[in-house]
Structures are given as C-alpha cells and as structure tokens.
Amino acid sequence: MIVPMPIIIVVTFAAVMGVAAVSTMVERRLLGFFQDRPGPNRVGPFGMFQVVADAVKMLFKQDWVPPFADKPVFLLAPIVGFMAVLLEFGVIPITPHWSIAGDLNVGLLFVFAMMGLAVYSVVLAGWSSNNKFALLGGMRAAAQMISYEVFMGLSLLGVVMTAGSFSLHDIVLAQSRCWFVIPQFLGCIVFLIAGIAETHRLPFDLPEGENELGAGFHTEYSGMKFGMFFLAEYAGVAMISALITTLYLGGWGGPILPPFLWFAIKVVFLICFFILLRAALPRPRYDQLMSFGWKILLPVSLINIVLTGAILLWQAGA
C-alpha cells in the first residue's frame, strides 16, 4: 500500500500534535492517580475535554512580549524548539511503509542534529527574556542538554554497531529476532536517562526548576508561545518514547497485531513510564546531575561500547 507523501506528512504531524496535546491531559490524570486523587475529571466524560479547554484558554490569552525582551529572538525561540521536535519525527519509521523520510541512511544522525537544535530554543528563550531566572534556566538547559547528548550518542553506538547501520529502518529490521533492549541493556538505561534529561522532564527538569527559578527559561512566556514550549516538551517525550521503541523495543515488530498498533502500544507504555518517573522521583541538585552524568553515565556507556565491540568481534571470529 503506497500512501502519497503529503498525506503521510500531514497525518504524522497531526498525530504528533494530537499525542502531545492529549498527553498533557493524560499526564495530569495519571499523576492524580499516582497521588490517590482523580485529577482533572470535570470537563467532559472522564475529563477528556480538558485538553480543549486548555487549548482555548491558551489561544485566547493576550499574546504579550515583555518590553525589555529581545523581540525577534523572543519570538523565534519557541518556534525553533517546536520545529526541531517535529522534524525529528520525520525519520521515525512508524510502520514499514509509514515514514516521512523513508529509509534515510543517516536517520539517527539527523535525530541528533535536531536534538542539538532544540538546545537553541531553550538558550535563546532564556537569553532573549532579559530576566535573570530565565537566563539561569537557559544556561542550565544548555549545560545539561549538551553534556547529556554526549552519553546519549555513545549509548546508541552499541545499537549502531550491532545493527550495522544508522538507518532507523534497518535498526528495526535488525531486531526482528531479539529486541536490542536485551543485548544493549546498559545502553538502553543510559539512553533512557539521557532522554529524560534531553527533554528536560522531571526528575531532570532543572532548567525550569519551579522552586528555584520561577518557571526557568520560559518565565516570561505566556499564551500560545508558552503553549508551544509546552507542546514541544510533550512532543519531545513522545519523541524519546518513539526513539526508544525504535532503537531498543523492536519498533513496529510484534506478533498478531498490525505494525502500527505495536508501535503505538510501545510508545504509549513509555510515555506512561515517563509520567511515573515524574510522579516518583525527586529532582537532583544541579551539581549532582552533572557529576552523575560525567562520572557514572559516561563510563557506563563507554563500557557498553567496549563490551559490544568485543562480543561482535568474538562472534565474527576475529
């Protein structure tokens, strides 16, 4: 079945936006359940229209730019963040035949390039706000995302070595016999942790640590510009979930059910796991975050590479 490319693009992006919007509601509901309370359950059946209510509220808020802000950059920052996350979805193979970029042979590198761009959004937002809290949040975000991107890349090298390709399509196909989460367990854990830090979700949400920095890098943002940061964060969560699914959980692969359903089930499971992490874990101190990254995650991912390489060479009979 060949679907025309414009339809694929529109449907995929619409689906990503939808997932991001719905996961704001799902997160609040789940957090409620984790804390023995119902969460938002008043708007519509089971509180399902809370998303609509929030969207309407955000759209009709005054679109305000602080007079002391650097206006062009201030406007650019949320757009950059949102675009970067959406572009990452372009290379994710959702089913064997449903992917915007198709079988891109540098898919994984493209994802990393876009993640690198996402840092700009946060830093520019913090910088252009001309607000000390926003700037502190932006600096933290820059340091955190750049250093965690290192282990993120290193942790993935094991997958790339085993699959022998940077193409996400090939990586999924390479997992047809055994999901990479088993041979690449260390790498998967490091990638998961780095992914949380990358999307600056709790417990690694230091760039927006409420009790220290107000709202961090988006302190000065309101209305739909804030909404774009918000949506980009949730789309980022969906993105990391989709990446983990693709790289470690066998992508669309699975028995009986159609490929798309398998992909969706795995992604939803991971999104719920991210929410569980938020509900359960406290935020580390900033220096703890950094030393944990450089002193634990970096050696662990290097060990993972060495072990994977050794095993691959041994299997090849060298």
């Binding site: 789940l30 359940f33 984790f34 804390q35 023995d36 569980l276 992490l277 359960a280 874990l281």
Partner: peptide
C-alpha cells in the same frame, strides 16, 4: 517507582 506505581 514500584510503590508509586502501586498507587494506581
């Protein structure tokens, strides 16, 4: 994580 999950 497990104890928080049980609260579900």
């Amino acid at each position: 994580l497990w104890l928080t999950f049980l609260h579900l």
